[in-house]
Design a protein around this nucleic acid. Structure first.
Lengths: 246, 246
DNA sequence: TGATGTTTTTGACAAACCGTCAAAAAATGA
DNA sequence: TCATTTTTTGACGGTTTGTCAAAAACATCA
């Protein structure tokens, strides 16, 4: 049953179309403004048809989030394949995070919604698992780099924490920074003009502090990060454009 | 006009009562479940009366957030008054964060809602400013500690970032961790069993990495954090209980 | 081609919610 | 006591959600 009838393909493509229509509504006007009526009207279908694709609007949001997190995972995987010492590859993940927040802003924002329990709980187990899997995969990619660092004796993690908890710190600082820089009422007023530079500096200090070789100073760190940015830009772009094809 | 009539006092106290009723609905069932009808029914008032207190439900959420952020500010201020070297006082802020997340879980969750633009934008300027002020104050408290560290030459911040951006890193890691540990689908599955310990470790490494004296190892760090916890517990508790009196 | 059965689409419908406002009720004060 | 002000009420118009029987479109086969 690999063959799909014309009708079936039509339906499948409409699922994607719904997400395409729903996305700007969610992003620009929030979850409340995203109504089934409105999506239906905009697509010139009856409301019932939309309900054939998604049982409720929460599920639409989760479906969008799956796409976004799969994109993030792709960027992480690409970054992790960089041919360099483990620490540089770890920094490459940071570059992927920066890229994601800056160039895939909409996807980053969509990711936020899944943290809302009332949205999460109304969604199907199937999509919840897809998201869990993505999160697991992302953690796995970074954990792989850490494991390489440990194996090559370029890094030594204190016995008080697990490698995953080590990763968690970077996750938290990046994630926290992204949320704050998006939603905090005017960081500039608080004296924070370049949150991205600040996070770079903190990550460098952390990596140095944990003794991950090669150690480096700010100048060298910036040079490497910029080099990584250049190296990835084209690849990242094509990943962003070709997504959904897999 | 300092004197309030009985009626006026009645009305004022009802505002607080509304928040008391609305809070568990918001926390347990989310923003959508929080309806004016329901609050009114539960308080045995007509809906119009609730609208006399708040022009919409967004404003109720922001009012709750103001309370929560004022509590956070109080905890920060208390922590910052600890008589010790600047670095230890910085760690005291970390303890306040831990306390807030663990013992004032509901307040922490309420804080989240203000990051939702559709809620923020519908609220009154007055409450928005109250929240901005709280955030500014919190930053100010921590910045004060950093300034003391700089003045006493116990800390030297790289010229590439501002003192506020230095603070930002700690804000981000704590904030990010709180959000992740609350909403990430099962951190334990990812191998993260003690997010709080992990954050402690990362903060210690950061503070050491920036050369903030006195430098310390994990054992010493834990000892100090535990001591701070003990020192604050009673004060924090009474702050939590007496809030709203100011 | 046309008759028959299946799948898909449709939009009217009940229930719930938001925010308004004129009228009713309560409080105030002379 | 009665006139004036303040507060409360709940019915109302306009939306939204999710359902479901009927209509339309499609597939299959004689």
């Amino acid at each position: 049953m690999v063959e799909l009838t014309r009708k079936q393909r039509e339906i499948a493509s409409r699922t994607a179309e719904i997400l395409r229509v729903a996305r700007p509504i969610l992003l620009r006007e929030g979850f409340q403004a995203l109504s089934m009526d409105r999506v239906a009207a905009q697509m010139e279908y009856a409301k019932g048809t939309i309900y054939n694709h998604f049982p409720n609007k929460e599920e639409i949001v989760l479906a969008m989030a799956v796409e976004s997190m799969q994109l993030r995972r792709s960027l992480f995987e690409r970054a992790s394949r960089w041919q360099a010492k483990s620490r540089i590859r770890m920094m490459a993940i940071g570059v992927a995070c920066e890229y994601f927040t800056q160039n895939c802003r909409e996807d980053f924002l969509v990711e936020q919604w899944i943290r809302d329990h009332s949205i999460w709980d109304k969604s199907s187990e199937k999509r919840q698992n897809l998201i869990r899997q993505c999160e697991l995969d992302c953690m796995g990619v970074v954990d792989g780099i850490v494991q390489d660092g440990l194996r090559d004796r370029e890094l030594l993690i204190p016995s008080a924490i697990t490698p995953q908890e080590f990763v968690y710190g970077f996750w938290a600082i990046n994630y926290g920074s992204q949320i704050l820089s998006y939603s905090s009422p005017s960081l500039a007023t608080l004296g924070i003009h370049s949150p991205i530079q600040a996070v770079r500096m903190h990550c460098m200090t952390l990596l140095n502090g944990f003794g991950w070789h090669p150690q480096m100073d700010w100048e060298r760190c910036q040079a490497i990060m910029d080099e990584l940015s250049d190296g990835f830009n084209k690849d990242f772009e094509s990943i962003c454009n070709n997504r959904g094809t897999a």
